[in-house]
């Protein structure tokens, strides 16, 4: 048996065994990972609008394409209609806004008048203990609740104070809230419908 053959074979065998092991692990953990993701999203939606049921707007929904345009430069991820007793009570938006260290996934709830009902940070990579203050210091996010219906970018800057030492993380959240305001004004206002 030529030597090179032995070398190739040993690497090949290692890779096959490794791949099998990984496939098994993946198969065992995948459903749980999916479930965890779904739960995290559910918790965030529940937090921004307690008691409502949510319906995701599909890709084909014209509101989705319009919201994507209105959200820029913040990335639009998903739009949900919030219902209570069959009546639409508002909207929830999932946006990815740039913080200090990569995108922060935000879930923002809006009622039918365009006021913010709540903001929840689904995930972020901000510096623990510094940038993560946007989540641990509750007052910061609660400021979004003081915004008047029909708020603009300038209103967000004027109403929401940044956390000192965590300016860029604060800006990530503020830009997200501002994008939600733009989406409401340009796309969502007056588009409420019945539960399907």
């Amino acid at each position: 048996m030529p030597k090179s053959f032995r070398l190739v074979l040993s690497v090949l065998v290692t890779c096959v065994i490794a791949a099998t092991g990984l496939a098994l692990t993946y198969g065992a953990t995948a459903p749980r990972i999916e479930e965890q993701k779904r739960l995290a999203e559910q918790r965030s939606l529940e937090a921004v609008m307690p008691g409502a049921t949510f319906e995701t707007a599909g890709e084909a929904d014209p509101l989705v394409a319009a919201a994507e345009t209105a959200a820029a430069p913040v990335d639009f991820v998903a739009l949900y209609r919030a219902f209570s007793d069959g009546q639409q009570v508002g909207w929830a938006l999932r946006l990815a806004s740039r913080g200090y260290a990569g995108p922060m996934q935000l879930v923002i709830g809006l009622d039918t008048s365009g006021s913010v009902t709540g903001v929840s940070i689904l995930s972020m990579n901000e510096t623990p203990g510094l940038g993560t203050k946007v989540k641990s210091e509750a007052w910061f996010i609660e400021q979004a609740g003081e915004l008047q219906p029909g708020f603009t970018d300038a209103d967000v800057r004027g109403t929401m104070d940044a956390i000192s030492g965590a300016t860029r993380s604060s800006n990530g959240v503020r830009n997200g809230v501002a994008a939600a305001g733009r989406i409401y004004l340009e796309v969502l206002a007056g588009e409420e419908g019945e539960a399907r």
Binding site: G21, L22, T25, Y26, T29, R32, I33, Q36
Partner: peptide, 10 residues
Amino acid sequence: TIVDLSMNAF
């Protein structure tokens, strides 16, 4: 990868 997947799940 095993650690990565398990941490993600648990």
